[in-house]
């Protein structure tokens, strides 16, 4: 029963969601909104508490055991609790609310922007690795990439030709490959959903 009960819940919810897709009636929408839209935020709030507890416990364990780079865990805990305090107390005491905004705008946003900007360098290194012409296919990739990149350059009389070739590469072979992947993804989604709903795939519940 311990194994069957979750399967019954999954089957019932899955079946309901499938049927709901074909029933546009208001009553069907009501249950959809109740189950699929209202429940997740409620569960999410409690799960967030579990997440914060997990992060705190892991950080404290690292500090206590003085594992590698344990000092970062102190920064994590300070950030977690100080920002939470600024946010919660600042709701009633405006100066702390300002401190929250200041910290977010001057610490969090620049750090995030720094991480994001690393992407430019990683794209360059990844492109270098991808475009090495070691085989026929890699050479085709290299030529296609050069043409697509060159459409942004002013090339005088060649601009129009390069632009049209680039559009053809993007709209014909590239789009065909993309759609092939998307069709496979669509079938895979239906298949996985059916496997989970019908209880065929139950590895995440453990052994039968």
């Amino acid at each position: 029963m311990k194994r069957q009960f979750p399967l019954i819940i999954i089957f019932s919810c899955g079946l309901f969601m499938v049927v709901q897709y074909f029933v546009p009636h208001e009553k069907s929408e009501f249950f959809y909104e109740f189950i699929a839209l209202d429940w997740p935020p409620i569960i999410g709030v409690f799960a967030l508490m579990l997440g914060v507890i997990s992060l705190t416990r892991v950080s404290i364990t690292r500090i206590r055991r003085k594992t590698e780079a344990w000092r970062y865990s102190i920064v994590t805990l300070i950030g977690l609790f100080v920002m939470s305090a600024f946010g919660v107390i600042g709701h009633h005491y405006p100066p702390l609310s300002t401190a929250f905004d200041w910290s977010f705008n001057n610490i969090m946003i620049p750090i995030s922007a720094t991480m994001f900007s690393l992407l430019a360098f990683f794209i360059a290194s990844a492109a270098y690795r991808a475009f090495r012409a070691r085989s026929v296919l890699a050479s085709i990739l290299l030529v296609a990439a050069i043409i697509v990149m060159m459409r942004f350059f002013p090339l005088g009389p060649l601009t129009s030709v390069v632009g049209k070739t680039s559009d053809w590469i993007l709209n014909v072979p590239n789009l065909a490959a993309k759609r092939a992947i998307l069709i496979g993804v669509g079938l895979g989604i239906v298949s996985t959903a059916m496997k989970v709903v019908l209880g065929i795939e139950r590895s995440y519940l453990g052994k039968d």
Binding site: G51, S54, L55, R57, T61, M108, S112, M115
Partner: peptide
């Protein structure tokens, strides 16, 4: 239990 832990729901903070 600490094998699986929560980090953050900020995309780049998570990446870092």
């Amino acid at each position: 239990e600490d094998m699986v832990y929560f980090v953050t729901q900020n995309q780049f903070a998570y990446v870092a």
